[in-house]
């Protein structure tokens, strides 16, 4: 993670320092000031996932009977809910929809952001600073203000209930932040490199693709993860603009489809929530360092 790279850069002095401070503290003291509060917070943060996972594999009769079965554990796990989810519902289709929408709009947004960020930082056209500020402000316009007029816009453009309703609207959430993020990365790339290339006769496009982009790969990855997560998470647009079952995304579909009239299928609901979270968890398992550094804007690699 960031701390490792940071430590590595700061060299032995930094490492010494953290050891140096902690020798002042005895173990019991650290137990009370560090480990105890930390474990309480961790338990609270992780309990809902444990509960989700447990509910997903509990047989139905144990779910609603807290007296005869210890609710915190089950000795008879069942794959019924998960297999019902995967084989008897449209769940795989919803996963595919979500994936498709998320990837397409992420790619669109990143292309747009790279161009915009580069133009703002390096072309420095007239008014670039103001445009940069405006784009950042755009990030602060929340979807819950926009969804009502956007729904009429989506009707007007004839996009209602198609994946394009989402693919084209998600970039409005994604572009501002990723542009902002990439601007930070591009700024760190030395000007001299570009100047040399310009003198050698490279076009701006060549500079962008051959020099700047390769150097900004970590930033691109962060932006990609960020965009992808936001898409996967998005709810209100998907709820409003999509109406038929076969076009829904996972978050909306789960809420709507696992409540059969007046019966809640808690097992399947939880299984659906768990499986729906997995792609992101996997993504983060591989790229967590990038993500952390991206969020902080501490991008001075």
């Amino acid at each position: 993670m960031t701390d490792m790279t940071a430590d590595a850069k700061r060299g032995p002095a930094a490492a010494d320092h953290s050891e140096g401070m902690s020798y002042l503290e005895t173990l019991p003291r650290r137990l009370v000031t560090l480990y105890l509060p930390l474990s309480i917070i961790l338990i609270v943060l992780l309990f809902p996932f444990y509960w989700m996972a447990l509910t997903a594999i509990k047989p139905d009769e144990q779910l609603l009977d807290l007296e005869r079965f210890n609710p915190f554990w089950t000795w008879t796990p069942t794959w019924k809910h998960v297999s019902k989810l995967l084989f008897e519902t449209h769940y795989p289709l919803w996963l595919w929809n979500t994936m498709f929408v998320a990837i397409t709009s992420t790619i669109l947004s990143i292309i747009a952001s790279v161009l915009a960020a580069y133009a703002i930082v390096r072309l420095r056209y007239r008014g670039a600073q103001w445009v940069g500020g405006a784009i950042f402000l755009a990030y602060l316009v929340p979807p819950s203000i926009l969804f009502i007029p956007l729904s009429t816009v989506v009707f007007q453009y004839g996009l209602f209930d198609t994946p394009f309703a989402l693919i084209l609207t998600y970039p409005t959430i994604l572009i501002p932040f990723s542009t902002w993020l990439l601007m930070g990365y591009f700024k760190t790339i030395p000007f001299e490199l570009e100047e040399c290339a310009l003198i050698d006769g490279a076009s701006r496009w060549q500079i962008l693709t051959k020099i700047v982009m390769p150097l900004a790969v970590p930033g691109l990855i962060s932006a990609f993860i960020f965009c992808f997560t936001l898409c996967w998470n998005e709810f209100i647009y998907a709820l409003t603009f999509i109406s038929s079952t076969q076009h829904k995304t996972v978050p909306v579909a789960i809420v709507n489809e696992f409540v059969d009239g007046d019966i809640y299928r808690w097992g399947s609901l939880m299984a659906g929530a768990l499986v729906g979270s997995l792609p992101l968890v996997v993504l983060y398992a591989f790229f967590v360092e990038h993500y952390v550094s991206a969020m902080t804007g501490a991008v001075k690699e």
Binding site: P48, F49, W51, M52, T229, W232, N233, F235, V250, P251, V252, I254, V255, L269, M270, G272, A273, L274, G276, S277, L280, V281, Y284
Partner: peptide, 11 residues
């Protein structure tokens, strides 16, 4: 990381 809606269902 986990989508808000999905954790909201857990809650």
């Amino acid at each position: 990381i986990v989508p808000t809606v999905l954790s909201a269902i857990a809650f």
